[in-house]
Nucleic acid binder design. Structure first.
Lengths: 129, 129
DNA sequence: CTGTATGCAAACATTTTGCATAAGC
DNA sequence: GCTTATGCAAAATGTTTGCATACAG
């Protein structure tokens, strides 16, 4: 039953790349970056590694408006993102007041088993110049 | 330059169907429902109609975790949704405190031109029984 | 009549899967 | 050596587009 994860070159490559970037990147971008840096990793493997990491909570997944998923290495624990529309750079933020608000609203409407999605988009300082 | 929208049978069919439902539905579901009700409308047209309506603010679009877009006729004006994970039924909510919070957080981090995404998921009363 | 709308089929893009091979433990 | 991981090619999915035809104004 234990997932018995194996440490392979390609898996490590994905992890290493991801920890070196603090912006959200698509699976295909990550694949391209690996190729560019000389690592030979199949696109399939990139997808599979990202899926595993996401499940393990090692990366955060964001669904963009064009339906493409974007990945980023993130601190564990519950948090939300302030993302730059232009360059994809990210600030992790906590939203304690929002958490409370969400729960209250949900309860008032008879909803249970509540979760939520909060995200702020904008232009970061560098990109707004 | 004016878009000169034309009133066609199929366009009306999509609008009518949508106003009769208060749950989020995918384009393909909408297409299937139209077929089932005897209306002959191409899937392409459904997509095109929904895109137009979304642009005009007549429907709200939601991107699900599986990358599928979901549509729903909505009140105009800025609002957010409390959605049932199970049946897709929806309650529109306003989030004034959250708006303020989002703006503040963004400003504190030097972000401008701010927008946000807020959504609450849960199980509605009917589905939690 | 002129130009927008439709619908089919084909194109597209992203992600997933089947299966044989390679490799970790 | 048993089992998981990889990688290619092919499939699956959701959506968009080219183009000839139909129809609204």
């Amino acid at each position: 039953m234990s997932t018995a994860r194996r440490r392979t070159r390609q898996r490590a490559a994905v992890e290493d790349l991801l920890t070196g970037i603090d912006e959200f990147r698509t699976a295909q971008q990550i694949h391209a970056l690996l190729q560019a840096s000389g690592e030979r990793v199949g696109l399939t493997t990139v997808y599979r590694s990202l899926a595993l990491m996401a499940q393990a909570g090692q990366v955060d997944v964001l669904l963009a408006e064009d339906g493409e998923a974007r990945y980023r290495a993130c601190s564990s624990g519950h948090h939300h993102h302030l993302v730059c529309r232009e360059c994809g750079s990210t600030v992790e933020v906590t939203a304690t007041p929002v958490e409370r608000w969400a729960r209250t609203i949900a309860e008032q409407n008879g909803f249970t088993d509540v979760s939520h999605t909060v995200e702020i988009q904008g232009l970061c300082e560098a990109c707004s110049m």
